[in-house]
Nucleic acid binder design. Structure first.
Ligand code: FES
Ligand code: FES
Lengths: 163, 163
DNA sequence: TATTTACTTGACTAAAAGAGTGGGTTATTT
DNA sequence: AAATAACCCACTCTTTTAGTCAAGTAAATA
C-alpha cells in the first residue's frame, strides 16, 4: 500500500469539513489556512473527493464544500481510496501474477495485510474522529490561530513530544 | 507507511531462505533464479538484512547466506524494518510536529494505524509462513522450474489475468 | 447585466524515491 | 592459482509526489 501526504491531507481536510461544516458550506481557502495545506493542492484533492461523491460543492459567494453524506457514513478508507486509488499492499494488484504470470511466494501475506488495513480504516468514521477529545482540542487551537497562523508563540511543544 | 517492492522482495527472499536453507547456506544466485529478483538488487537487500542481523554470510565456494536466528524468532516486521527503516504511517515520524511544530488533526489516526500494521506484521514469523500449504505448493512449483526459469512454456497466464 | 466570489480543469515542474545495473574487491575453497 | 560467492560503491533511469500556474466556468448579488 502507499500512504502518502496526499491521503493524509485528504483525511485532514475532510475532518476539518466535518468539524466546521455544521452550518453551511466551507471554502477551501478556510481549510487551507486552518490546516496549512496549499489551496491549489486542496483543489486537486477535492476534485477527486467530489468524483468519489464524498463531498458536494456550492458555487458563488458564500459557497464552498459540504459532506455529501452524514459523518457516520464516511470512513477513512473511503477518503483514501478516493484520492489514492487503493489501499492494496500487493505488487500484483490482487491478481496473483507478479512472478511471470504466476503467484509469488508472499502474495497471500500482502493480501492479508491489505485486508487488515482496509478493515481498520473502514472501521473509523468521520463522526468517530470528531468525537475524540484530542481532535477537539486541536480543532480549538486551530480556530484560535485562524489567520494568525504565522504567530510563533505556540511553538513550545516540547512536553508533548517527550510524552 | 511505505510498503514497496523492496520490502516485498526482502520478505520473499527471507522466506526462500527459510524454505531451502535447512542444510547449509544458500547463494544469492539461487534465490535470484528461483524468485526472479535481480542478483545485484538482492545484494543490496542482503547488505541491509545482514546489518539488521537477520542473516549471516559465508564467503567462498559453497557459501551464501543463512538465517542468523531460528525461523520462529524472525517476523515479517523485522524484515521490513531492516530494509525500509520504518513501518510508520505518520507524516511527522511519530513526533506530532507536522503542522508548524504542532500536532496536526489526524496525527493520532496515523499513529494508531502504524501500531495496527506493526502488530499484524510482527505477529507473523517465517516459521508460520513456511507451514502454510499455499506457500509450500508455490515453493514446489519454483523448485520444479529452477534454472528452467527462462522456459517460455510457462508464459501462458492469460486465463489467470482475466479472472 | 456586471461584478464578485469561488469552484474547475489541465498542463506543467522540481525534487525525491524507487528499482535496477555495473564494476571492482575481498575472502574461501578446491 | 582458479573459481566462487559475498561485499561495496557509485551511478542511471523511471515513476511518483507535491505543488504551482493560468485560464475558464458557474452562481449569486447589487
Ligand atoms: S504480490 Fe500478488 S503475486 Fe506477488
Ligand atoms: S502526522 Fe504527526 S503531527 Fe501530523
Amino acid at each position: 500500500m502507499k500512504l502518502t501526504t496526499r491521503g493524509r491531507y485528504a483525511v485532514t481536510a475532510m475532518l476539518d469539513l466535518a468539524l466546521h461544516g455544521k452550518d453551511g458550506p466551507i471554502s477551501l481557502a478556510d481549510i487551507s489556512s486552518r490546516q496549512d495545506i496549499s489551496l491549489s493542492y486542496l483543489e486537486q484533492l477535492f476534485a477527486k473527493l467530489r468524483r468519489g461523491e464524498l463531498v458536494s460543492s456550492v458555487r458563488g459567494p458564500g459557497g464552498g464544500y459540504r459532506l455529501s453524506r452524514s459523518e457516520e457514513a464516511i470512513n477513512v478508507a473511503d477518503i483514501i481510496d478516493a484520492v489514492n486509488e487503493s489501499t492494496d499492499a500487493t505488487n500484483c494488484g490482487g491478481k496473483g501474477i507478479c512472478q511471470n504470470g504466476e503467484m509469488c511466494l508472499t502474495h497471500h501475506l500482502w493480501d492479508d495485510l491489505s485486508t487488515q488495513i482496509h478493515l481498520f480504516l473502514s472501521g473509523i468514521s468521520l463522526a468517530q474522529l470528531t468525537r475524540k477529545e484530542h481532535v477537539q482540542s486541536i480543532c480549538e487551537r486551530q480556530d484560535g490561530h485562524e489567520s494568525a497562523a504565522n504567530n510563533p508563540q505556540n511553538l513550545i511543544e516540547t512536553e508533548t513530544v517527550n510524552a
